[in-house]
Design a protein around this nucleic acid. Structure first.
Length: 593
RNA sequence: GCGGGUGUAGCUCAGUGGUAGAGCACUUCCUUGCCAAGGAAGAUGUCGCGCGUUCGAAUCGCGUCACCCGCUCCA
């Protein structure tokens, strides 16, 4: 491991340790030895998550006119997961390469010719040993030395650092095996023998009903999005909304990840915050507005416009989400990755990953995808229930088009279908049928999907707020000071209230008064033990942005001007100001909301 | 899933076959005049879990679970 990587691992360990010590995050089921890939949030973690959830919910729906909330069940009719493609994608039989553990779909192995080479194991000068039979296909025309080199390289990369340099690995007990033709038992790239075909499903299966037969199988949802699609018509019909509008949801999702890792970053149970923002197809926008706005570097994305097509809406949501992250203190550590056509799923038109700096690397916080009408159309087809909306503006505008104008639109779309890089072009008859419905004002909405992970967000917040400095006191004793520089809005505790001394009843009584005053409005922590400095430090470590100290001036010892004023201490920098008790609440509320 | 590593007090760790330890944290009391002060007393561990070897296991062996690292996976 490089020095950087080691430092980052050490940093991550400190963060994990702080999270446990101060009650942010615990290992699930710890007293029973834990449970792989799931985590519990302690008192402070629960507050932090709640603050993030509230910030998101407010930004996405309460502060907007065009987005509504939903809270759907985790268990759903399994037909939803068949329609969405989740069952098929994950129910494939997979085979694993015995050399590299690379997986391939069992039905996607190309037949190969060659000679099977067998080894009884391998060893390295580092003392590392592999004690298992290795079978590799020496492809027709391949030189034995080239095969050996390949095997050594693959073994070394799979074994990690323990095996040392590939060229020093010794292959043991080489023996020539059978000659095969058209064999599908070897990995097409590595040549390693493939293991048995096994189902590989990332969805957590369960049974609805006590009989637990295969007929009762359903899944814990692997994403919250599908519930929004499945309830689209109900929300639309019950809310009097018009496209464009969105439906958002916060909730748990479950994936049987192969390797949960990086603390809470990739876990098997996690919380998603997703918005499905439904928009008109570009053709509808063009008919109504006469044009579709083109994006450029200096495009104004602040207010949605009627002539926005999917591209503008997509970029608008990227900008909106960026603003959100800035508002919770992550503005400085974001990166963006625009997926290339190769990365994109066939149904997606564009997808931006919002990445964030973590100690273990720059990783995805949120994905913002333009998914076309893929999801609603899939549910329409599978359920047999129309997911179309009727758009009167569109019908009226279309009625004014000449036949030539209509045909021009159809021709433009047909050309676009032919130019598609991924997926099959839509047959002309289907395109014409679709336009037929469109000209009457009917279409299945398209969608922009910003999908964020709450647990990742919480981890990003903690990791980026984590700050350690070394301090030397008067006696020359060095100590490490830890401060979580959390944005006041997300901090689990907003303010600490301290009497300067605990053996002066007047100070304690006044401090309890201030505590009671603030507690109704925010999470406040009262502490009278240990020295004032230590109490400040304890709160710094959990990111409490403010500290209030009740001292003798508060009691009026230095005269009436200072009576009923307190010291307000700021976490970052430790500067202090004198504030009247009656001014505290408005001042603090402004800072934390 | 593969390979490597780790697991001892709340945290960080020492302890290599013979009575479980330190620092910090914690509790109580005294003291305290703004940034991890001091004093006194105290509590805290089936040494991840299970099986085995042994007169005796935190220590050795096997298994298992969890976490970390590297692969792999990640619509």
């Amino acid at each position: 491991m490089s020095t950087d990587a080691k430092n980052n691992t050490a940093l991550m360990e400190k963060i994990v340790s702080l999270c446990k010590r101060r009650g942010f995050i615990f290992q699930s089921s710890e007293i029973y030895g834990g449970c792989g890939g799931v985590w519990d949030y302690g008192p402070l973690g629960a507050e932090l998550k709640r603050n993030l959830r509230t910030a998101w919910w407010n930004a996405m729906t309460r502060e907007r006119e065009d987005v509504l909330g939903l809270d759907a069940s985790i268990l759903m009719n399994p037909a939803i997961w068949k329609a969405s493609g989740h069952v098929d994608t994950f129910a494939d039989l997979m085979r694993e390469c015995s050399l590299t553990n690379k997986r391939v779909r069992a039905d996607h192995v190309d037949p190969q010719d060659g000679v099977i080479m067998n080894y009884t194991g391998a060893q390295a000068p580092t003392g590392w040993k592999l004690d298992r039979v290795i079978s590799v296909l020496m492809k027709k025309g391949e030189h034995i030395e080239s095969l050996r080199k390949r095997v050594r390289t693959l073994i070394a990369s799979n074994a990690g650092e323990a095996a040392g340099k590939p060229e020093e690995i010794e292959l043991l007990g080489e023996a020539k095996g059978d000659t095969v033709e058209g064999s599908v038992d070897f990995h097409p790239e590595t040549g390693g023998a493939l293991g048995p075909a096994r189902p590989f499903n990332l969805m957590l299966k369960t049974y609805l009903g006590p009989t637990a037969t295969e007929d009762d199988v359903t899944y814990l949802r692997p994403e919250t999005a599908q519930a929004i699609f499945a309830q689209f018509k109900n929300v639309f019909d019950s809310s009097r909304m018009k496209v464009p509008f969105g439906v958002c949801q916060i909730g748990k999702a479950f994936r049987n990840e192969v390797t949960p890792k990086n603390f809470t970053f990739r876990s098997r149970e996690f919380e998603q915050m997703e918005l499905e923002f439904f928009i008109k197809p570009d053709e509808a926008v063009e008919i109504i507005s006469g044009e579709v706005a083109q994006w450029s570097e200096n495009a104004d994305l602040s207010e949605p416009q009627p002539n926005w097509g999917w591209d503008m809406w997509h970029r608008y949501w990227v900008a909106q989400r960026t603003r959100f992250y800035e508002g919770i203190g992550l503005g400085g550590v974001l990166e963006y990755y625009w997926q290339t056509p190769d990365d994109l799923a066939h149904y997606a038109r564009a997808c931006v990953d919002i990445l964030c700096d973590f100690p273990f690397g720059t990783e995805e916080l949120e994905g913002i995808a333009a998914r076309g009408s893929f999801d609603l159309t899939a549910h329409q087809t599978a359920s047999g229930k129309t997911q179309e909306v009727f758009d009167e503006d569109l019908k009226n505008a279309a009625a004014k088009l000449t036949n030539e104008q209509k045909e021009a639109l159809i021709q433009k779309r047909l050309a676009a279908e032919q130019a598609k890089v991924k997926g099959e072009p839509m047959p002309e008859a289907d395109v014409r049928a679709w336009f037929e419905r469109l000209f009457k004002g009917n279409y299945v909405p398209h969608v922009i999907e910003p999908s964020a992970g709450l647990d990742r967000m919480a981890l990003a917040i903690i990791a980026n707020a984590f700050n350690e400095t070394e301090k030397t006191d008067e006696k020359g004793k060095k100590e490490v000071i830890t401060v979580l520089r959390l944005h006041p809005r997300v901090a689990p505790i907003k303010v600490g209230v301290f009497p300067l001394l605990k053996n002066k009843p007047e100070l304690v009584a006044k401090a309890r008064e201030v505590y009671a005053l603030l507690k109704k409005h925010m999470n406040v922590f009262y502490d009278e033990t240990a020295s004032i400095g230590r109490r400040y430090a304890r709160q710094d470590e959990v990111g409490t942005p403010f500290g209030i100290t009740i001292d003798f001036d508060t009691l009026g010892e230095k005269g009436p001007e200072l009576q009923d004023t307190v010291t307000l201490r700021h976490r970052d920098g430790g500067e202090q100001e004198r504030v009247k008790i009656c001014d505290l609440l408005p001042k603090l509320l402004a800072a934390v909301s």
